[in-house]
Amino acid sequence: MEKQNALTKLKSYAKKLKQNLFVLYLSYKDSRVPWYAKLVAICVVAYAFSPIDLIPDFIPVLGYLDDLIIVPLGISLALKLIPPQVIEENRVNAEEIRKKGKPKNWFVGIIFILIWVLLAYWVGKALFEIFRY
């Protein structure tokens, strides 16, 4: 029961942080944001809006690792790097974007698909070499 309660709190925390994705989306375009904060923000937003996960959700436990840990950590880091006045100014516009729906980033999705294809090729080639003899 206690584990389930902790998991519920973690999911709630992750959901709250994900609401800030639209703030990051607007903030990385702002000229007042330092380049390193823009870099972190664009990476987090691109990954979060990607239709493909680095770790697919169908993999037990690990599949939700990115949703529960990786994305929220990236969002937290990016928000800490962006000036507070920029974040506050972008919250109102971010709410409007969020209501319209989550944009998809197919470019990042294609990159993840290529990574999985290359990984499958590499594993397949290694297995072929092992079992060839």
Rank of each mutant, 00 (worst) to 15 (best):
K80E: 14
N90H: 15
F58N: 09
Y36Q: 06
S76W: 15
K100V: 06
D53P: 02
E95T: 10
L73E: 04
W35P: 00
N90L: 04
N105V: 09
A48K: 03
A37T: 04
V86S: 05
I70M: 11
W35A: 04
R91M: 14
L79I: 09
F58M: 03
I70R: 06
P103C: 09
F58L: 02
D66L: 03
P83E: 15
R32L: 10
D67N: 13
V92A: 13
V44Q: 02
L81A: 11
L39E: 02
L79M: 15
Y47L: 05
I82Q: 02
A94P: 04
K100I: 07
E96L: 14
D66E: 15
E89I: 09
V92T: 13
I52A: 07
I75Y: 07
I42T: 06
R91S: 13
K38V: 02
E96D: 11
A46P: 00
V92G: 04
E89T: 11
C43I: 13
P51A: 10
V33K: 02
G74A: 10
N105F: 11
L65F: 14
L54A: 08
P103M: 09
F49C: 03
F107V: 10
K102C: 05
P72D: 11
P51D: 13
F58Y: 12
K38R: 12
S50V: 06
I69E: 02
I75R: 07
R91W: 11
I52N: 03
A41N: 03
K29M: 09
I70A: 14
D67K: 12
R91P: 08
V86R: 09
I75V: 15
E95Q: 12
I55H: 03
K29G: 01
D57G: 00
V44S: 02
S31T: 12
K80R: 14
A41G: 01
G63L: 05
P51W: 12
I55N: 01
S50P: 01
F58R: 04
V45R: 01
E89P: 03
K99D: 10
P56L: 06
K80Q: 14
A41S: 15
A94S: 12
L73W: 13
L81R: 11
G63T: 06
A46N: 09
N105L: 06
R32H: 05
V40C: 00
F49E: 05
S27V: 04
I87T: 12
P83K: 15
V86H: 08
K38A: 01
W106T: 11
